[in-house]
């Protein structure tokens, strides 16, 4: 599903955010990207959805080389991705329903289809009773769930989440993780950037570790879950 070959990215001269990253993520995988703050996790995700361009290297998503893609094709790429942003990026003046329907509207779907899917997505995250609220009237955990519903509503090939449990309490984290597992079970490839060790411990999956822009580890669940000592 995702192939990354020897990718370099630097925002400024002589300070690289990513140095020589190569990773393959097969279809249906569930992957954590971890590492300390500033390791380059967010940057890697941004490269995947075309918000940044790499200085060197190739990136293939769903068989398409996005580093060579004309910028007019980028929107088409994004339509098969579901992205949960670190700062949610919900529209504060729109209702929950309008926020979640946004990606479908943009794809020009029929109204009745939009209503049905949005309701379904909100039900999945347990917010169908709050569809007329506005994001700022919701708790942090609820806002996160709206953001996830917006990512899920397009039934994405790849679900990308940047620090999805950043400021949430453990109980809410648990609920959120269930949502990602559900999406993965329905066929989405899931990519989560996090520095939350606790989360990785409770839901062991493949872990790709970055540090200072370099790949420093890539462990599959079997080796990871083996108790040490």
């Amino acid at each position: 599903m995702i192939q990354i070959y020897n990718v370099f990215k630097s925002y400024q001269k002589d300070s690289a955010a990513l140095e020589g990253i190569s990773v393959k993520i097969p279809k249906g995988d569930f992957v954590y990207i971890t590492g300390p703050s500033g390791a380059g996790k967010s940057t890697l995700l941004k490269l995947l959805y075309g918000a940044e361009k790499p200085n060197r290297g190739q990136i293939l998503v769903n068989g398409q080389n996005i580093t060579r893609m004309r910028s007019a094709r980028i929107p088409i790429l994004r339509r098969c991705l579901g992205i949960v942003f670190q700062d949610f990026k919900l529209l504060t003046r729109r209702t929950v329903f309008e926020n979640v329907s946004f990606p479908l509207e943009i794809q020009g779907r029929k109204r009745y289809e939009i209503s049905k899917k949005v309701y379904q997505a909100l039900k999945t995250v347990g917010l169908e009773h709050k569809l007329n609220r506005r994001p700022l009237e919701l708790s942090g955990g609820e806002q996160q769930r709206v953001a996830i519903a917006r990512a899920l509503v397009v039934e994405p090939l790849v679900l990308i989440a940047d620090e999805p449990t950043g400021n949430l309490d453990p109980q809410v984290t648990l609920e959120i993780m269930e949502l990602f597992k559900g999406a993965n079970a329905r066929g989405s490839t899931v990519l989560i950037a996090t520095h939350d060790r606790e989360m990785i411990r409770r839901f062991p999956r493949r872990v790709i570790s970055l540090d200072g822009g370099r790949l420093v580890g890539d462990r599959t669940p079997e080796t990871f879950s083996v108790p040490r000592g």
């Binding site: 918000a51 990026k89 946004f102 943009i106």
Partner: peptide, 16 residues
């Protein structure tokens, strides 16, 4: 601007 940004991020074409 946030709306414009989000539209682009969820796959809106510039014309759209």
């Amino acid at each position: 601007r946030e709306e414009l940004e989000v539209m682009a991020l969820v796959g809106g074409t510039p014309l759209f």
